[in-house]
Simulated assay, not measured.
Amino acid sequence: MKNPQLHSDNYYIQGVNLYAGSFCLLYFQGRFFLNQRAIALTQELIQFKTRILNQMLTCTSFTFNFPLLIDHIRREAIFFVKQLQRLQRRE
């Protein structure tokens, strides 16, 4: 007798019946939207760090961080966004 929770052509996730094709589509759509959200948030971080760095260099703001550290975090964020964008384009 087959297990009522599992069938060869269906997947059951938290009581929801998803066909294998639908499951893959939902997985890739979810990953796409998660990456898009991460890109948007990281771009906001880049803008923030750029603004802080410019204010530090023009002596209009003070922070205990070194400018090189802020620039490093900013450059890492830019690299991360580029990598996520490549992933989104499936390169």
Rank of each mutant, 00 (worst) to 15 (best):
R74T: 15
Q14M: 14
T42Q: 06
S8V: 08
I70D: 01
L6K: 09
D71S: 07
R51V: 08
N10K: 08
Y11T: 14
F32E: 09
P4H: 05
I73S: 04
L34H: 15
F64H: 12
G21H: 03
L6D: 12
T63K: 00
Y27A: 09
Q47W: 03
A20Y: 08
F64L: 15
V16S: 09
Y11A: 05
I78V: 14
Q55H: 07
R90F: 10
Q47R: 07
M1T: 08
N17V: 12
T58Y: 06
L87P: 01
I39H: 04
S8E: 08
K49P: 02
T60K: 15
Q85Y: 03
I46V: 15
S8L: 12
D9K: 04
L41T: 11
G30W: 05
N10A: 01
G30H: 07
Q43K: 10
Q83A: 13
T60M: 13
C24S: 09
N17Q: 08
K49R: 12
F66T: 12
N3Q: 09
F28T: 10
T63E: 06
R37S: 11
R37Y: 05
F32H: 10
Q14H: 06
A20N: 12
R86S: 15
L84C: 00
N10I: 06
F64D: 10
F28P: 00
Q83T: 15
V81C: 01
L68F: 11
G15V: 02
G21R: 03
Q47Y: 10
Q83Y: 12
A20K: 14
A38K: 14
P67M: 00
K49V: 05
L45N: 09
T58P: 08
L26I: 13
L53G: 00
K49W: 07
L45P: 05
L57A: 06
A77E: 01
Q29K: 05
Q83R: 09
M56R: 05
Q83H: 10
A77L: 02
R37E: 04
K2W: 06
Q55S: 09
Y12W: 04
S22R: 06
M1F: 10
E76N: 05
K49D: 09
D9N: 13
R86V: 09
L41M: 15
V16L: 06
N65G: 02
